[in-house]
Nucleic acid binder design. Structure first.
Length: 876
RNA sequence: GGGCAGCUAGCUCAGUUGGUUAGAGCACCUCGUUUACACCGAGGGGGUCAGAGGUUCGAAUCCUCUGCUGCCCACCA
């Protein structure tokens, strides 16, 4: 066969291989047969280029889908991108501002700005799709989707209308999170809480007001309409229900009603809470409660959407920013001797994750998804649907239960649902799906298209980007028009995502999918952690520690990148990524290449269909049984999404067992063409899902027109008992050889003693096996030469008797007798324990008097211990 | 305030229902290399598994407490 170059240069092959895969048509499952298997791409935002986190996701998904494809499934990996409403608009506006267009929205107007954003998004999208190809990702490009294309927009409108008709989407005036900088609402989940220093002011509204309150936002007190106390608080009970009129400088004197609320803590501060219904979500809830009880309180907005004080705040404050107003109000408190205390405190405030400013709570008319309302005909709320999908299964069907890996995120998710409030879905930005609602005077019309007739105008707002992402698993599979893909691939088989979007995305997909198509969106979800640098820091622009995956691919190759990303990780936990790691992977890829290079040199004509190679020697038996084990383990681990451990096992097999031991022995024993061929075929297949390029390249170097990507996954076979005896014999040989090598390298040992020990080791080898070629091998490797020398010298006289002991003592590694002794000891101890337990369980008194649970437990212990005992016995 | 995770070799991390002498990669030391591979080979050093109790024949693994580190949630005004 032809000779391979000395080292693997990925840059020479990768693009051509990808092209060949793509042109083969096998990325498209329509060209495959078997059971369907599907993975949906978490669509990357079209806000920029892909980073290492995306590279990790690509590696995870592609490894899984290639594995399933080789297992003979119709494997679909469906790619897509996300228009990422607010993120994209914020990014484009930021760039425009940098270029000197300080007020992009005013300068360009809606249509023109949308054009600019669209242009950016399209070019970004093209970059991203190209990067996905560079990662070797085997996705079906014919099914490419975008959250903002026509098909997805149609799905959005249909779902909106359905929810609207069911009363699950409603328009209401409520306190929402408002980003002044972004001039838009944001949902509770889009808030990033940061801790900052603040001052807590303790004061009275007026001299004769009976209660003292505290606040870090005194300027909002210009809109207070109540003071809440705990109904059990004896100090204040007498005031509950009374109303006091105070003048704090607002436009009108305030009517402050003393109300009772269980949420107020008696021991916190003064135990009295100034209630500002217009500028606090909590206070707003009290306001609605009071209203429902028929004891309404006022609601006075004093802060506007521009972040400045409104007229209602009073002449002194109108037009000031909140910070200016705060200073002024505190001055006023001081002047009037109302300020009692001023102290420094740490405070958590919510900031907009996209615009970065501290979010104001404001009452506005917005669109909401009601998560508690009972859905007509289902007798359940959206919250209930979200819960049951991961607990009892959708509609109580355990086949429709989502498995989350690692499990702990299930609790996190359920806890989140517990705290969930109605989801504000309308945004005042322009880049996104327009709310499909039209108005004409008092009339409201919701449908897929504008109503007939004059005078209708569409709602100006757009939808939260997660509304459309929530539909992703089914909107990409032809819903609602063409259900062919839906029927085959939904619920999708496997999904992966970072833990940071569990609430944003996983939760919304579960909500939308169970509600709309009456099924779970995916059967399994694998949660991965975040990548960090070698110091545990996040990769970020500001820290300037970023690694561009494309650079890494250029330098080390895609396979090395993929392998390093999937090694040493565990689900849900962050992992460090650094140069040495990818270098190690690159070295492995090259090792695999060189193993192949060696095999190439050995075999004349390769055969890809060897099923059972002829076994001649102990070493053959050993390596083949190791291979069976690693086959079985790889399959088991991949089925469990344990990529890391699968790689570790495969690596040990390939490098240590195959290359370092077997190949070295094969060089001496000779005649191994068939086995080497078979071993190479098999490990190429096993490695292919992880490192597709190098394996495919080697495969095609051997078998030319064949494509590794669609070969059958090797199936593990059961090992018989007598083989396992041979295996342990070979392990002993290995240990002895290692012992000899260790001895040789040890210069502190007296030469005569060393010689004795090494010769005795040689004798031991002879005792173990004499007809398999092993001795010849090992002799060539280490011993024979020395043994010959020793026999010539006088020191060899006592080697048989004394040498064994010396060797054992010095090499330490392979004392079978000692090992037996240790096992014997453990066996005895366990036997005693088991006997004790049996006696106890046979004792009538004990059985009569002990609680059944205790007896059961003892029984279980007995079973366990007995099992262990059997195991030891078989080893003895 | 509530919850979750992590603390295992110099570094980054595995360790799946408790069970042989706790592992890997990288780094380090010694030796080797005209041999498939220096992106290499052989050997070696290095860990009382954060600490303290407890359960058990047996604990890195289970329980309790403590200490750091990080994350998430939350209406402490």
């Amino acid at each position: 066969m032809k000779e391979l170059p000395k080292s693997y240069e990925p840059q020479k092959y990768e693009d051509a291989i990808y092209k060949r895969w793509e042109e083969s048509g096998f990325f498209n499952p329509d060209n495959l047969s078997g059971e369907p298997f599907s993975i949906l791409f978490p669509p990357p935002n079209v806000t920029g280029v892909l980073h290492l986190g995306h590279a990790l996701e690509n590696s995870l998904m592609d490894t899984m889908v290639r594995y399933q494809r080789m297992k003979g499934k119709k494997a679909l990996l469906l790619p897509g991108t996300d228009h990422a409403a607010v993120a994209t608009q914020a990014k484009v506006e930021k760039d425009l501002i940098k270029q000197g267009h300080l007020h992009p929205r005013e300068e360009y107007g809606r249509e023109k700005l949308l054009d600019i954003i669209r242009e950016f998004a399209e070019s970004s999208k093209a970059t991203i799709l190209n990067q996905i190809k560079k990662m070797g990702t085997s996705c079906d490009w014919s099914r490419l989707a975008y959250t903002f294309d026509d098909k997805r927009s149609l799905a959005v409108n249909i779902v909106f209308k359905k929810m609207y008709d069911h009363g699950l989407i409603y328009r209401g005036y409520r306190v929402v999170n408002w980003s002044v900088k972004g001039q838009s609402t944001c949902s509770d989940d889009e808030l990033v809480h940061i801790e900052r220093d603040a001052k807590m002011y303790t004061f009275k509204y007026s001299k004769d007001f009976p209660l003292v309150i505290s606040s870090t936002r005194p300027e909002t007190k210009l809109g207070d309409t109540a003071v809440a106390v705990n109904p059990k608080d004896e100090r204040y009970q007498k005031y509950i229900g009374q109303t006091f009129v105070v003048d704090v400088g607002a436009q009108k004197p305030l009517n402050i009603k003393i109300i009772a609320d269980d949420g107020v803590e008696v021991d916190f501060g003064t135990g009295a809470l100034g209630v500002t219904p217009a500028h606090s979500a909590v206070d707003y809830e009290m306001y609605t409660k009071q209203k429902a009880q028929g004891t309404p309180i006022d609601l006075i907005p004093v802060i506007g959407i521009d972040g400045k004080m409104l007229a209602a705040a009073g002449d002194k404050y109108v037009g000031l920013t909140v910070v200016e107003a705060r200073t002024k109000f505190v001055e006023w408190l001081k002047e009037n001797d109302l300020l009692i205390k001023e102290e420094d405190v740490k405070q958590n405030v919510g900031t907009s994750d996209r615009f970065g400013d501290v979010v104001e709570a404001l009452p506005l008319t917005q669109w909401f998804v009601d998560v508690n309302k009972i859905i007509p005909s289902k007798n359940k709320s959206l919250k209930d649907l979200m819960k049951e999908a991961v607990t009892v299964g959708h509609n109580g069907d355990t086949n429709q239960k989502i498995k989350i890996t690692p499990e702990r995120f299930e609790k996190v998710y359920l806890n989140w649902i517990g705290n969930l409030r109605d989801w504000c879905i309308s945004r005042q930005i322009w880049w996104g799906h327009r709310v499909p609602v039209w108005y004409k005077g008092e009339e409201i019309y919701c449908d897929l298209k504008a109503p007939e007739g004059e005078g209708w105008s569409q709602d100006e707002d757009t939808l939260d980007t997660w509304f459309s992402s929530g539909l992703w698993t089914f909107s990409t599979l032809g819903w609602p028009d063409d259900l062919k893909d839906m029927n085959a691939y939904h619920p999708t088989s496997w999904m992966q995502m970072g833990y940071e979007i569990i609430f944003f995305w996983m939760a919304r997909m579960i909500l939308m999918t169970t509600y709309t198509v009456d099924a779970i969106p995916f059967k399994e979800v694998y949660i991965h952690g975040m990548l960090r640098d070698e110091h545990g820091k996040k990769f970020s622009k500001s820290a300037n520690n970023g690694i561009d995956p494309l650079d890494a691919i250029k330098e080390y190759g895609c396979d090395a990148l993929r392998l390093s990303l999937l090694s040493g990780i565990s689900p849900g936990n962050d992992s460090a990524f650094y140069k040495e790691k990818i270098e190690g992977s690159r070295n492995f890829v090259n090792k695999l290449w060189n193993i192949s290079r060696y095999v190439f040199l050995q075999i004349e004509k390769a055969d890809k269909n060897i099923l059972k190679p002829q076994v001649k020697t102990l070493s053959d038996k050993w390596i083949l049984s190791k291979l069976e084990t690693v086959k079985a383990e790889t399959e088991k681990l991949l089925d469990r999404s344990d990529f890391s451990l699968a790689i570790e096992n495969l690596r040990t097999f390939t490098w240590t067992d195959f290359a370092d031991w077997y190949v070295e022995i094969a060089k001496v024993e000779g005649g191994k063409q068939e086995i080497l061929n078979y071993l190479l075929n098999t490990i190429l297949k096993l490695w292919h899902p992880f490192i597709p390029f190098v394996t495919e390249q080697i495969w095609q170097e051997i078998y030319e027109d064949e494509m590794l990507m669609i070969t059958k996954w090797p199936k593990a076979e059961e090992m018989s008992d007598d083989i396992s005896d041979d295996i342990s014999e070979f392990e002993i040989v290995k240990n002895i050889v290692t012992g000899i090598r260790t001895l040789r390298a040890d210069n502190k040992i007296e030469p005569a003693k060393k010689l004795d020990a090494m010769i005795s080791a040689g004798v031991r080898l002879k005792l173990i096996n004499d007809n398999s070629g092993i001795i010849k091998t090992l002799a060539r490797l280490e011993v024979l030469e020395i043994a010959e020398q020793a026999q010539k010298s006088k020191t060899a006289t006592s080697f048989v008797e004394g040498g064994v002991e010396v060797f054992v003592e010095l090499a330490g590694a392979i004392d079978l007798d000692k090992e037996k002794e240790r096992l014997q000891k453990e066996f005895e101890l366990l036997t005693e324990y088991v006997n004790g337990l049996e006696k106890k369980l046979a004792n009538e008194e004990f059985v009569k008097n002990a609680p059944p649970a205790v007896i059961e437990k003892e029984r279980q212990k007995l079973v366990q211990a007995a099992e262990k005992l059997d195991k030891i016995e078989s080893q003895l």
